[in-house]
Amino acid sequence: MTTYNPNQDAHYQILREMLIEARQARGMFQKDVAERIEKKQSHISKYEGGERKLDWIEVLQLIEIFELSEVDFLMEFQRRVFEFNESTQTKVLQNVAKNAAKKARVRAEIVRLMRENSLSFSDLAEPPIRTRRHKSNR
């Protein structure tokens, strides 16, 4: 069973953005690239739009068409992925800190209310006293 990894989707997005940037930097249209790889323009549109994922062989073919260095392309990809992961990790840590602060405020409010009402935590652990409701005769 595979588990969903949201970073993987973001990493594919980074790859797509890099390929789109490379195509545009070469002044090429989708149809130009499609002709070079002997596919339809919709093939290019689908991978650029995220409807289709590319395999490594296709990526290498595109890198060659765009006259890029494989090593430079991969290094730039790794840099962008690292940057994305760092920003994602920072956001996660910020959310954890917000949740911890919220829990601390709630706990502080509970303690304040307990003091006002002369209650202890053991008082809160006891079930409330139930009273019976009497049915009224109608």
Rank of each mutant, 00 (worst) to 15 (best):
Q8R: 07
A108H: 08
R26A: 08
K91P: 00
R105P: 05
Y47R: 00
I110E: 15
R130V: 12
H11T: 10
A97T: 07
T90E: 14
E51P: 05
Q94R: 10
L113K: 10
K135R: 07
R133K: 12
K102P: 00
R132F: 15
V111R: 05
M28W: 11
Q78W: 03
S136E: 08
T2A: 13
S87F: 05
M114V: 03
R130D: 12
I20E: 00
I37G: 01
S118G: 04
Q78N: 13
V106N: 13
I57F: 13
N7L: 15
K91I: 03
K98P: 03
A25R: 10
L15C: 04
I129L: 15
L74V: 04
K46E: 15
R36E: 14
I37H: 00
Q8D: 14
S122W: 07
K102E: 11
E51C: 08
V92K: 07
F82G: 04
H134L: 13
R79I: 13
F82M: 05
N137A: 10
E76C: 06
R112F: 15
S122A: 12
K39Q: 15
S87V: 08
D123F: 14
L113Q: 13
F29E: 06
K39H: 07
R115S: 12
F77I: 01
I44L: 05
P127L: 14
L124R: 00
R107L: 15
E67C: 02
R138L: 14
Y47F: 15
Q13T: 08
A22L: 07
R138M: 06
A97H: 09
Q41M: 02
E48V: 07
P128A: 11
Q94Y: 11
K103E: 15
K103S: 12
R16F: 13
M18V: 10
S118T: 06
D32Q: 05
P6I: 05
E76L: 13
R79D: 15
R105V: 04
R115T: 09
E38A: 09
L60E: 12
M75E: 13
E64D: 15
R52F: 12
V92C: 02
T2D: 07
M28G: 02
I63H: 04
K135T: 09
A22D: 02
E58I: 02
L62T: 02
I20Y: 03
N99H: 08
I37K: 00
S45Y: 06
F84H: 10
V71E: 15
R52H: 08
F84L: 10
K31P: 01
E76S: 08
T90M: 14
D9W: 00
K39D: 06
G49I: 01
D32Y: 06
V33S: 02
R115N: 12
L113A: 02
R52N: 07
L93W: 07
A104I: 01
I20A: 01
L119T: 00
E116H: 06
